[in-house]
Design a protein around this nucleic acid. Structure first.
Lengths: 240, 240
DNA sequence: TGTACATCAGTGAACGCGCGTTCACTGATGTAC
DNA sequence: TGTACATCAGTGAACGCGCGTTCACTGATGTAC
């Protein structure tokens, strides 16, 4: 055992990777409902029952794809933030949001798999939770750092006091992610977070087709607007 | 012909309605991918081929469900706005947004059908466009009215000038819906619109499960925040 | 280094299922005279 | 009011398809002595 793999172990890891790769390719063509173990086997030149040596059943394959998708998106966003290490928070936030959008456009079916309609009859196991939170964690982290550095300037007309139930949810969120953001900022963070994915979903799912033709530019503008709502300010802001 | 129906025509309309009703029931259980003409026929006690007297094929049935879903949501939102006829724009906007959320929670699979992942291999025909725009029209209408009445007070830190391509898209939108909203407000309107559906999608699709337990209250808070971002102000605003 | 046995990967056939769609048909409902 | 014909609704059988999953099997790869 240990780190040294036997030939068999290496072959196993290799073929498992080939299976998920083939499944990902199929996902890109037919979407999640069309994913089939038989088609995966066919693409790899195996007999359909052979796949069962590597994957317990269809649902487990779906789970593997979900985890991969979350991790792929998480990698993309985290890499972007590493690249923007020195930048001020507004720019970091916009960069992270843009990374989400670009990943989604590059992987529409994987995006749909994790952020679209749930697959009927499939319940995601706990394995998917950790990878799912990476992006959210990154986004909140940017804002939390800005807050700790005293760089947050929420606009006037602030949010009214938050409902007690919501306050409890927020307390749990702060504990879970180690953030210090106050309730009124968290409301705006949730708004920004849902706005980001709402925009991306509309674009990727085709809701704005034939209406909006310049998505990239509009995205930047709306993300800028919600970033300011959160209290992030662009450097050398043109104010007004 | 004319308005008077023969018995046959009435029977035809009746059974067509039963077919879509059965399909809607199936949708609620198995989601769009599981919708099948044979199952619909079974539920109605017909032989599967009989359904083809009423529906050309599976895609046409899907289209009928999509149109019904959009219209059902449109009805709900418009009825809410009729009920809030005298109210000021901030309250009207929040009421309309809340109607969207409540409809979505009551009809999760119909919501997923129209706002979730696209059904692979299905292309929505033009018939679906008009009903699809009703909600958006209603939301923009509220803000446009407020603007014309001089009631819009966008927060400071306004949006930078909008990209030329986006400006062209906006011009077309203004023409299409007969609105007068300037570009910088439209950016915020798009942000509010995508935030609304982003929040609802996250809730309905289970993205916030185990994290947020008080969705209704949090929803109200975030909608309030983006409404203020657009420039709507609550009456007797507690300011700051 | 060599043999005996255990583990694992992949095969091929099969089970049972549900699906969309077509087609020739029977029988009831409508229409024209 | 009555008959002759056309229209339509619903039947039942069939075509061809793909799916998930199981199972007894062959043969290759690994392990222990």
């Amino acid at each position: 055992m240990a780190a040294i793999q036997t030939a068999r172990e290496r072959a196993r890891a290799d073929i498992t990777a080939q299976i998920t790769a083939a499944a990902r390719r199929q996902l890109a063509v037919d979407g999640a409902p069309g994913l089939s173990l038989r088609a995966v086997a066919r693409e790899l030149g195996m007999v359909s029952s052979a796949v069962y040596r590597y994957v317990a059943n269809r649902d487990e394959l779906l789970t593997m794809l979900i985890v991969e998708a979350y991790d792929s998106l998480g990698d993309a966003v985290e890499a972007t933030l590493v690249g923007a290490a020195g930048a001020p928070p507004f720019e970091r936030f916009v960069a992270a949001a843009t990374a989400v959008r670009e990943w989604a456009i590059a992987h529409p079916h994987e995006y749909a798999l994790v952020y679209g309609s749930p697959v009927p009859g499939y319940a995601a196991p706990e394995t998917t939770i950790a990878p799912a939170t990476r992006v959210t964690l990154a986004l909140i982290g940017i804002i939390d750092h800005a807050h700790r550095a005293g760089l947050l300037e929420p606009p006037n007309g602030a949010v009214a006091d938050v409902d007690r139930g919501v306050a409890a949810d927020f307390e749990a969120v702060r504990d879970a992610v180690g953030a210090e953001l106050p309730d009124d900022v968290l409301v705006r963070v949730i708004a920004a977070w849902t706005q980001l994915f709402g925009f991306v979903s509309f674009e990727v799912f085709g809701q704005t087709r034939n209406v909006i033709h310049h998505h990239a530019e509009l995205f930047e503008a709306t993300v800028g607007a919600v970033a300011r709502l959160v209290g992030l300010v662009p450097t050398r802001s043109a104010a007004t």
